[in-house]
Amino acid sequence: MKIDVAFIWTAFVHLLSAIPTTLLITAVSVTVGFIIGLIGAVVRIYKVPVLGQIATAYVTFIRGTPMLTHLLLIYFGLPVIVDAVSAALGLGFKSSSIPMIGFAFISFSITAGAYMSEVIRSGLLAVNRGQLEAAYSIGMTTPQALRRIVLPQALAVSLPNLSNSVIGMLHGSTLAFTVSVVDINAKAQIVASTNWKFFEAYLAAAAIFWGLTLLIERLTALLEKRINLYNRGGVA
């Protein structure tokens, strides 16, 4: 097989238009997933009745099932629920109005939340319990102590793993093509279908993902360096 180097560049140029969609899916899923993960981690650590058990079950189920399965469950299950609720309340809203990328947002955010919950929980547990008790001794409430003392240190400890989660969601966003979202991977398939040069098209896609991954790693390194300037005692 002869590789068409010129077409790799042609495909690369065509794939650039799909980068915003991939980054949007990643950004939304990571942001919402972080919020879900933070809430899940806190209720599990503090053993909040009912919510703690629900969070544990959620994390166990999501981490124990494939990401593609979550997407398909949302894609086929959510419209049924939305249409049923809409009909019961007389809203007149149809699930067909939901954009395809919306299913990806919901599914990937749920997936990211479960994995980030474990990352954040490990970071919170790494912070010395004595710092929380010291915060109580000067009159801080638990939310104040978490926000001002515990969370900043926990996030600093968790940063490398959080970076891995971001990269994982970036790569996982390629599954969005299964619900007709044109991301980088789907665009590569479309470009290659014109002349069946799939190898060259996917090489171009791989180069873009590699570049984006290196960018995330670089930004993480800079953020770690900045955080360490203010981290004199660590979490010990």
Rank of each mutant, 00 (worst) to 15 (best):
V182D: 12
L222S: 12
L229R: 15
R232C: 04
I227S: 05
L132Q: 10
V179M: 01
S107L: 04
G233M: 10
L89F: 05
I106L: 10
R129C: 00
T220G: 07
L175F: 08
T142W: 02
F105S: 08
G90R: 00
E217D: 14
G102E: 10
A201N: 03
I98T: 07
A134T: 14
G233L: 15
S193F: 00
L223C: 13
A104T: 13
A176K: 03
G234E: 08
W196P: 07
A154P: 08
M100W: 07
R129F: 01
Y115E: 14
R226A: 05
E217H: 11
T213G: 04
A206W: 03
G233R: 12
I167M: 00
L124D: 10
R226W: 11
Q131T: 10
L214P: 11
L170D: 04
R226N: 11
G130V: 12
N195H: 00
T220F: 00
Q189H: 08
T220W: 01
D183C: 00
L91D: 06
Y202S: 07
Q189M: 08
V127I: 15
S95F: 03
G113Y: 01
A112P: 08
A205Q: 04
D183T: 05
G113M: 01
R147L: 01
A156D: 12
S117L: 03
A145H: 06
N185C: 03
W210M: 14
T178M: 02
L159N: 13
I149F: 08
L175M: 13
V150R: 02
L203Q: 11
V157L: 05
E217F: 02
A192N: 06
S137C: 13
F209I: 05
E217A: 02
Q144Y: 05
I138W: 11
I208C: 06
I190L: 12
L91I: 14
A186I: 01
M100P: 08
V179C: 01
F177M: 13
L212C: 11
V182M: 15
A176F: 01
